[in-house]
Amino acid sequence: MKILVVDDFSTMRRIIKNLLRDLGFTNIQEADDGNTALPMLQNGDFDFVVTDWNMPGMQGIDLLKEIRKDDNLSHLPVLMVTAEAKREQIIAAAQAGVNGYIVKPFTAVTLKEKLDKIFERIS
């Protein structure tokens, strides 16, 4: 399983990468905003996206919308891991087709739970 982690803070990318590695996912690449992530997704065979919301350049919510618009990517599961915690935002993300929503600060257990749930629903 090839995963793309999108966050503008390298430390957060590193944390998520470590947690994912602990859960057995070792094929992980990184991008620092939507503008970097989108071409990577279009050119690579990624199976899963973990993205932040608030980033310079293209924000996570717009990346999600772009993914859903793209015929080759629209099936891709997207998990949002973000400090954005307004009800309106969570509803907006759900409407845009997010597969899971985790608010920061979060725990390893929460990440595992949401991943399990997403994969369970897909298979």
């Binding site: 919301w53 608030n54 924000q59 919510i61 400090a83 954005e84 915690a85 307004k86 009800r87 309106e88 935002q89 509803i91 907006a92 920061k104």
Partner: peptide, 16 residues
């Protein structure tokens, strides 16, 4: 309302 705001530092004082 649905734009990015960053970490909420006063969640206990807000209802949104």
């Amino acid at each position: 309302a649905s734009e990015a705001e960053g970490p909420i530092i006063d969640a206990d004082k807000r209802d949104d």
